[in-house]
Design a protein around this nucleic acid. Structure first.
Lengths: 134, 134
DNA sequence: CGAATCTAAAGCCATAATAGCCTCCTGATG
DNA sequence: CATCAGGAGGCTATTATGGCTTTAGATTCG
């Protein structure tokens, strides 16, 4: 969980960038999507750092997909934008870090772990191409 | 998207309530889960309003599942707690409400609609029983 | 029955995180 | 070197999270 608007905006941007074959600048994207320009700029920068987008400075610069749409999955996108894999619960990824002394006998950790696995699998199997095709 | 901690806490509570066969009060649940008592109380009230939980006042009162775990799906839970179906984007559920004059020719709506459908389907097909079994 | 007690329900207020705004800096282009 | 667009940081507004208090319904006991 913990999926915020940043992930939404990232996906929307990727859809537009996928259709536009030349780089689009953040200003154009924010106008097209009616999204806060500065917030979107940070999101695009995150996507660039994650190697999902290429960024180009200067005249006619902007952002463009760095990968094929079929190679861009939503887990990657949300992780890049949220700064981490959207975690169901802080303790879910690793039992070792559990602050509780009940770590080894935690009654809900197995279920959280399962839920997290299902969410991750869903996001990982959903690519940008899946959203564009069919 | 727009899935917050409230949904997490709701799921955690349901898992515990599923295992405890007599009603648990919000105070006990908040201690078991190390969650803010007052915030959890509001979440439990939402789940009660959505007919997912029964609530009992007075001595030995608390909350208990109203339905069978296999009949409680995550779309229902998140909708109840977030106050609405977690929407990818405001315009996604209905094209009619689109504030843009490009409604009928919106270049991303079809993709948003598809994404929303996939998320809804995933959540709707994931029941509390699924998290407890296997 | 009536009082005391238990717990949900509902409101208001404080804090923390997210979303959005603005300005300056950096690198690229012509 | 003038201009364009990304990079980075600080600041504000909005929303989410959490705390606290009061009210209301249910139970127990005398």
């Amino acid at each position: 969980m913990l999926i915020t608007r940043a992930s939404e905006y990232a996906i929307l941007s990727l859809i537009l960038l996928c259709k536009a074959k030349s780089p689009m600048d953040s200003d154009t994207l924010s106008r097209e999507l009616s999204i806060s320009k500065s917030f979107l700029a940070k999101i695009l920068q995150s996507l660039a750092k994650a190697e999902i987008l290429n960024s180009y400075k200067g005249v006619n610069g902007g952002f463009a997909l760095k990968k094929d749409p079929k190679d861009i999955d939503m887990l990657w996108v949300t992780s890049a934008v949220e700064g981490k894999v959207p975690a169901v619960f802080e303790c879910a990824p690793s039992l070792e870090d559990c602050p509780s002394d009940k770590a080894s006998t935690c009654s809900i950790w197995p279920f959280l772990h399962k839920l997290q696995g299902k969410i991750d699998l869903f996001l990982a199997n959903l690519t940008l191409a899946d959203l564009l095709n069919d």
